[in-house]
Amino acid sequence: MKILVPVKRVVDYNVTVRVKADGSGVETANVKMSMNPFDEIANEEAIRLKEKGAASEVVAVTIGEAKAQETLRTAMAMGADRALHVETQARTDTELQPLAVAKLLQALVEREQPDLVIMGKQAIDDDSNQTGQMLAALLGWPQATFASKIELVEGGLEVTREVDAGLEKLWVKLPAIVTVDLRLNEPRYASLPNIMKAKKKPIDKLTPEELGVDTAPRLTYVKVEEPPKRQAGVKVADVPALLDKLKSEAGVI
């Protein structure tokens, strides 16, 4: 079984982002970037399937500027075998949008013929939560989103999904798309020898034009602004003081 793992380079989750004064977007220059945390979990799951002997090859793919290669090196240092890089200058938080990403991935799936695509349920920059479902739709494949457990069964997968009411279990026939949630696994740290080894693993470069995909944005980001800030309130001394505030000042109890 061959597994494709799309990974995205995003502003690191520990960075407090700054909105640009001109309202055009979020400042990404000189900001720490890293692999989208959900994609790390997806990559980890693919590598574990390979280590168990269930998968033969794990191919990482990213779409983005030249520096996005760093994210592919991370994926390969974790254990992916090789990588594909679709290079674009478009900003991947606002200009390159989920439908275009899904179309690029569709073209790559048609080239690579994987049996399974495992990807993050959401990127923590645009918070769209769309690409996996869109890719499944374009390919006519089944989708198992928000996965917290993946089991290989005859002809398919049994996937436990995190939903608002608790958990759901689906069977999907392969080939399929799985998008992962936080509790699926805990991604490993790449060891130094593996980081060194990953430098020698191959990255194939492609362009949207070569894949025949129009990536022009359908959505215009008219304005990006600082959200209304909540003011810090007061510290109260003890429980009676808190109750008094909640009753007489806030009126919520």
């Binding site: 949008q97 769309q130 739709a137 989103t145 999904r161 359908r218």
Partner: peptide, 23 residues
């Protein structure tokens, strides 16, 4: 934008070749 809606709407949008606006 519940898990039900998040799971469903992008599939609809892609089948209709529409960009989705989430949440």
């Amino acid at each position: 934008a519940s898990t039900f809606g998040k799971n469903l709407m992008p599939r609809v949008a892609a089948l209709l070749d529409l960009a989705q606006i989430s949440d």
